[in-house]
């Protein structure tokens, strides 16, 4: 008798479940809302405010006059060229330095790979300010590098290594390399070692096997890491401000300075929007490429 369930009972049961499910969703929304509100109010909303501010010129008229400024004044043009050029050079150097490290990280046996990982992670965790200051000491006129080079009689007079482009690039590469190594390592770790062995078995030389098998399989991590480093370079602040000695102006400093110095914030807002746009485009392209590379397998 008790086995019989009437349709009204079923209906009641279904309704209770539905109510339960709704209650669950509501509870989850409530739990997630504080975090969401903080990020939405302090990041998403301000970015929209920036966009609207950038569209009103000095005269209060709606339009693109703030943006037109960037193409008419050579200071801005030079700053954009500088920013992209530095980001490009730094990314290229990071690639050359980072790829072999990630490769060894992926293939070394246990204790060694752990130590190498530590060597990548410790600087990753160290404050950028501290690292920038350390470079200031090392690269100064009578710093360690210049002293050593003079002692080795490679140069006669100390080189200008800091407060210029050279110092900026050395310091930025130092901060960015781990950001390239970590995603690269993740994608190399997933490569099946048997593939390389199979290649060798079929008569491929180590170099050939590397270029035909390993390198293509590490491409997703390579693209992701490279674009991440490039994007971070575009918006970088500390190192160019200190090691560039005021001579190297990148976009982030220009934004900060124009807010600190000028009463109207339209141009700064326009610069910020441009930086955001460039970042978004780079990330979007990287996502597309990585997706295509991983789907192509």
């Amino acid at each position: 008798m008790a086995n019989f369930i009437t349709s009204t009972q079923l209906e009641a049961n279904r309704r209770a479940l539905e109510k339960d499910r709704r209650g669950e969703t509501w509870m989850r929304l409530k739990l997630a809302s504080p975090a969401f509100l903080v990020v939405a109010v302090l990041m998403v909303l301000p970015l929209m405010v920036l966009l609207s501010m950038s569209l009103f010129g000095l005269d209060g008229q709606f339009g693109f006059s703030n943006y037109a400024l960037f193409f008419s004044e050579s200071v801005y043009v030079q700053m954009f060229i500088n920013t992209f050029w530095i980001a490009f050079i730094v990314t290229a150097i990071c690639l050359v330095l980072g790829y072999p490290v990630a490769y060894l990280l992926a293939i070394l046996p246990s204790p060694w790979s752990g130590l190498l990982m530590l060597a990548v992670l410790v600087p990753f965790w160290t404050s950028g300010l501290v690292r920038t200051f350390a470079w200031l000491i090392i690269l100064q006129r009578n710093g360690v590098v210049n002293k050593t080079l003079i002692w080795l009689e490679i140069i006669e007079k100390p080189l200008a290594l800091v407060h210029n482009m050279t110092g900026t690039i050395i310091g930025m590469v130092h901060i960015m390399v781990p950001f390239l190594i970590l995603p690269l390592y993740a994608s190399m770790k997933a490569i099946d070692g048997n593939l390389m062995r199979a290649g060798a078995n079929l008569g491929s030389s180590p170099v050939h096997a590397f270029f035909r098998i390993f390198l293509p399989l590490s491409l997703p991590g390579l693209v992701a890491g490279t674009i991440m480093v490039f994007v971070m370079c575009l918006g970088f602040y500390i190192t160019p401000a200190i090691l560039g000695g005021g001579k190297i102006k990148m976009i982030a400093q220009r934004i900060q300075e124009s807010i600190a110095l000028y009463p109207t914030w339209g141009p700064a807002a326009a610069l910020a929007v441009l930086l955001l746009l460039m970042t978004a485009i780079c990330l979007f392209v990287s996502l597309k490429i990585v997706r295509r590379l991983t789907l192509g397998r």
Binding site: M43, L45, P46, V231, G235, Q256, I259, L275, L276
Partner: peptide, 11 residues
Amino acid sequence: AVPSILIAVGI
């Protein structure tokens, strides 16, 4: 993913 200078300026 957003450069921190933009978050800072927005805030």
